Computed example of a mutant assay.
Amino acid sequence: MAIVEAEIVEGGRWKFAANYDIIIDGCLPRELTLEILLRLPVKSLVNFKLVCKSWNYLISSPDFIKSRTRSSNNPTLTLLYDRYCMQLYSLNPTVSRENLSFHNNEPKFYELIGSCDGLICMYSPLEECIYIFNPLTKETKKISTPYHKPARCFLEIEGVSWFGLIPSINDYKIWLVVRIPKLNLRIHVYSMRDDNWRELDTISAFRFIDDARILFWGMNAVEKNETLHCSFEYDYNEFMVKYDLVQDIIELERINLNHNQDIKYKNKPSIGILKDSSLCICKVHALKGVMDVWKLDQYSNSDSWNKLFRLDLGLLQAPWVFLLGFISNGRILVRSSSDELVLVDLDQNPPLQVRLGTLVNKNNSLFDLLDYSESLVSPFSLP
């Protein structure tokens, strides 16, 4: 290694530095090399690991990977996943086919559980297992389900299942909501740090509901304040399920959306987070083509749900409309029976409707929404 004297930028000020190791092929101080690499696309970093041992060591270091993953230079892609065709579509900014390869590129049926830090978590019904994998680096980690008799327990994974990071305890968790034939609904939580499953007491949590199996169909879960939230309607009343990811406590509370009964909704509600970090609930009437949206003004007060507006989905010229759910930055994706997609931005006043395009020959497909960002995080490094 050559030794030189150089000037570098540190904390916004120029600072004199001496005796820095220099990458021979670049003739740059290590700090400048680091700053440049942190601004490069993640796909490029995978190739740059082959340049030399120093770059490979730097790019592969846990601190570098963490900094690059949390960087504002790491864009988020909104993907629409076709369960039956194993195809991903990118919605940034229009509908286009995304060549994001799945585990081993095998033509198997998978159900998405969630995505976090460039890792995708999915369930394989054929193998009765869960995979966590990085599509960019092709690393895959296999996790057994909490059930050990596949012939008896063919699981139906609900859309409300979730995968993500809990920063305060440095742990990744899987929230797995399943229904088993002839049995009740079950909820299991897997901790990466502890490497074990724990079943939640749903009988006590939903003790006043006759059949909890009907609750989560078509719903979604969203994380706020390290707590999962999902809403549902039962016997003409609205409820919120809250699961504390740190304390490992589940509770159920009744909420009041303060709306009249002029519309009977056929679709399940979807819950999301607006740009101001407020919780938001959305319902769509399939035949009338209208969408109602409520906002929780005070997080600590479950009675402070206020209706924001009712929106006429006029861009969708079709007999049926379906709510696909929330995506990043408080936006909502709606699909028509003719497979036309419209993005609704709730932070505009009035809400902005943008036609994204049409999915071809997808009438019989089921879709999941996925916010995904590329990273170098290895599933074997969690946590």
Rank of each mutant, 00 (worst) to 15 (best):
294 W>L: 04
334 V>R: 01
383 P>F: 07
299 Y>S: 10
180 I>A: 04
39 R>T: 03
128 E>R: 06
156 E>D: 12
296 L>E: 03
89 Y>G: 02
163 F>I: 06
218 G>Q: 04
309 F>Y: 14
59 I>C: 05
8 I>V: 15
263 I>M: 00
235 D>E: 14
348 Q>L: 06
74 N>H: 09
272 G>H: 01
103 H>G: 02
296 L>F: 07
187 I>S: 07
18 A>Q: 15
369 L>Y: 08
84 Y>F: 15
75 P>R: 12
25 D>Q: 12
326 F>D: 00
324 L>S: 06
89 Y>K: 00
154 F>W: 10
277 S>G: 00
72 S>K: 08
223 E>V: 11
219 M>K: 15
251 E>H: 11
99 N>S: 11
298 Q>C: 10
236 Y>T: 00
217 W>A: 11
120 I>F: 04
305 W>H: 02
108 K>P: 00
113 I>F: 03
109 F>G: 12
240 M>A: 13
362 K>L: 06
372 Y>L: 13
379 P>K: 12
101 S>K: 13
374 E>W: 05
51 V>Y: 06
334 V>N: 00
286 A>T: 15
291 M>A: 15
256 N>W: 06
89 Y>E: 03
193 R>I: 03
230 C>G: 08
237 N>L: 09
191 S>W: 05
87 Q>E: 15
333 L>C: 10
167 P>I: 04
275 K>D: 02
253 E>K: 11
157 I>E: 04
283 K>D: 00
379 P>T: 08
269 P>S: 05
323 L>K: 00
52 C>I: 13
30 R>T: 10
39 R>V: 09
68 R>C: 07
300 S>R: 11
329 N>L: 09
241 V>Y: 10
293 V>F: 00
88 L>D: 07
7 E>T: 05
343 L>V: 05
121 C>V: 05
105 N>H: 02
39 R>M: 10
149 K>D: 10
132 I>S: 02
174 I>M: 02
6 A>T: 07
137 T>E: 05
172 Y>I: 04
328 S>D: 14
242 K>S: 11
243 Y>T: 03
54 S>Q: 14
136 L>E: 04
95 V>D: 02
219 M>L: 15
267 N>W: 00
43 K>R: 09
301 N>S: 07
95 V>Q: 10
93 P>F: 10
31 E>T: 10
139 E>K: 15
302 S>K: 14
348 Q>W: 11
79 L>I: 05
300 S>F: 06
255 I>D: 03
356 L>Y: 01
345 D>W: 08
82 D>S: 14
29 P>T: 04
197 W>Y: 14
139 E>M: 11
330 G>I: 05
44 S>Q: 11
29 P>G: 11
157 I>A: 07
345 D>M: 08
31 E>A: 13
164 G>K: 01
383 P>G: 13
80 L>G: 05
45 L>H: 07
67 S>A: 10
213 R>T: 15
267 N>Q: 14
173 K>I: 07
57 Y>R: 15
359 L>D: 08
167 P>E: 04
294 W>D: 01
364 N>P: 01
30 R>Y: 06
253 E>P: 01
87 Q>M: 12
310 R>V: 09
167 P>K: 13
4 V>F: 15
213 R>A: 13
374 E>V: 07
160 V>I: 14
207 R>Q: 11
73 N>W: 04
32 L>K: 14
274 L>N: 06
277 S>Q: 09
287 L>M: 12
367 F>Y: 12
83 R>Q: 12
